[in-house]
Every structure is written in structure tokens, then in C-alpha cells.
Simulated scan of single mutants.
Amino acid sequence: MASSYSNNLITITAFMILVSLTSVIKCDNNNIILEEGYTVTTLIDGDKLTVNPYAVVSLYGSSSDDLVILDSVKSTFYTVTVSGSQVSEINKLSGNDKGNAGYKDGDLGSAEFNKPKSFTVDKKNNIYIADKSNHVIRKISKSGVTTIAGGNIRKTGKADGPAQNASFSDDFELAFDLQRCALLISDHGNRLIRQIDLKAEDCADTSSGPGVLGSTIAWGIGVVVMCLIGFIVGFAVRPYVLPYTGRSTSGQRDMEAFPNQSGETSSDVLLRRQKRNC
């Protein structure tokens, strides 16, 4: 009898637990609004490419879907070209892909970083790195790697002022602000939002126009086209202009032969002047 009572009690308890879980699930579903129409696709498989992508950004004005990925473990940056949903090319951009962390500026091939985890890109595709372990902010450009902030301090702090003398906490991230033409710094350790003003040229929208070289080429093409149009138009109206010019010449000769008030023609005057000169 006691055994039957225990079994019934277990059954009732299990039923109550199931009802409670069902209520919780229904309650949670009532707070979720699922919006359809989105698809998840894997673009980069780190296991296949032997990289550990920690962060990624897309380059501005790229026609081939170029991305920059950061392998924080190796302290190395890579450029990746994605065509559709397939990686067609991957190349080391900068850093020591052997996993050696350090602090070294200079050319792209020999520069070293210390396990950065945050970076951003400006409109000229310069890359700015929050090199937290080195307590500095660095820049990757076509000419190489440089330090733009914290280089004279290289220790934690929250000092503002000239960028080389500034200091940061052990935990900060970067974002590019086009409207301010600046880097925004989320300095988590100091509970601060900070700013570094960039150069105006770094915020120029290269994707909205052809640039200086493109403008020069466009002007050259325009001049050539206008010259060709002028040549074609001139050649087309020439048959109509020559007869008119001929009539004008004939009229001019008639005017020269017409006698003046003294009864002399222009030819008589010319002969008289030549005799004087002789």
C-alpha cells in the first residue's frame, strides 16, 4: 500500500514538473518575435584555412568583397577575398604568423603585435589596432605599420593630450566614426569613451567618386571627344561654308575695283603708290 502511494506521489510530482516546464516554455515563446527572411552562411572556416578568426571588417570601395580578419592567437592580420560564399584567396597582411607576439613597427612583413582583439578601418582602408597588451594604438597602411598613440608611455593609465603621450587601460576597443573623422575608443578599464581626431584625407569617401587619377582621365577623354566632334562638324559644314566664302571674296574684289570719289579705282591708287616708291 505504501509502495503504491509512493509511486503515485512520484507520478504526480513528475506531472507537475512537466506542466511547470511547459508553462515556462510557452511564456518564453510569447516574448519572442521571429522575423523570417534571413539566412546564415559560413564564409570563412578557420579550421580549413589554419587561422583562428577573432574579428573581421570589410574594406571600403572593394569590388571583390575583400575582408580583413584578425587571428588574435597568432597576432596576425590576413586579407581574404570572398567570391559569392567561397574564399578564393587568403594572404597574410601583417604580423608574425608563427604565433610570436611582440611590439615592432616598420614594414608589413616584419611588424609584430601582442594579441590584439579589436581593430577598425577608415575610408582609405588604413587599419587601426587596439594593441592592448602593448598599451598602444597602431596603424597599418600601405607604407607599413606605425604607432599613433601611447608610444611614449606604453603603460596603463588614462592620460589625454598629444596622442603619443596618452595612456589607456588594459581593456579598450576602437571604432571608426566617419562623421567626426575620428577614432572612438571604448576604454572599458577606465570607464571612458575617448576620441582621436584623424586626418581629413583618411575620411575622404573614395567609393563615391573616381579620385584624382580618375578625374584626370575623365577630363582627358572629354577633351578628345570634343575635338572629334568639332572635327566632324567642321568637315560636315565645309561644303556650305566655302561657297559663302567664295562669294565674299568676289564681293571684296568688286569693292576694290569700284571707283572712289576722285574717279580712281583701288588698282589705280596702288599703281600710283608703287611709282612713288620707285
Rank of each mutant, 00 (worst) to 15 (best):
I12H: 10
A149I: 00
S141W: 04
I25F: 07
S6K: 14
N134W: 01
S62A: 09
V87N: 00
D177I: 04
N260P: 02
N30E: 13
G230V: 06
V241I: 15
S141P: 03
K26D: 07
T245K: 14
G144S: 05
V57W: 04
E256K: 13
S207M: 07
L18E: 06
F258M: 15
G211K: 02
T147K: 02
Y38C: 08
D187R: 07
V223P: 00
D66Y: 09
L70Q: 00
A166C: 15
I69A: 00
N126Q: 09
I193P: 02
V82H: 01
T13F: 10
L67P: 00
G102C: 09
C181F: 04
V145L: 03
D122E: 07
A236P: 03
A101T: 11
D131N: 10
I137F: 00
L174F: 08
S4D: 14
R253S: 08
Q86C: 05
Q86Y: 05
I229M: 11
T146D: 13
A2R: 13
C181G: 08
W219Y: 11
D66C: 06
T206M: 12
T42D: 07
S215N: 12
N260T: 08
N125F: 04
S83D: 11
F176I: 06
T79I: 12
L183F: 06
S3D: 13
D45E: 12
F119E: 02
T13W: 06
E256T: 09
E201S: 15
A218H: 08
A204F: 12
K115E: 07
R194V: 03
G99F: 04
K92F: 04
V223K: 08
A200Q: 12
D171I: 06
R194T: 05
K117N: 07
D197T: 09
L34E: 10
G102A: 10
V24C: 08
V225F: 15
R138C: 05
T147D: 02
C27L: 13
V40R: 14
C278W: 13
K26H: 08
A204Q: 14
L192W: 04
K155Y: 11
M226A: 15
D170F: 11
G109E: 12
R194I: 03
F113V: 05
S4L: 14
T265L: 03
Q252S: 13
V241Q: 07
Y78C: 03
K132Q: 15
K98T: 14
K275N: 10
P239I: 02
D71H: 01
S141L: 06
I153G: 02
Y60N: 12
I44L: 08
I148F: 01
T11R: 15
E256C: 13
D177G: 05
D268M: 15
Q86F: 07
S186A: 15
R194H: 04
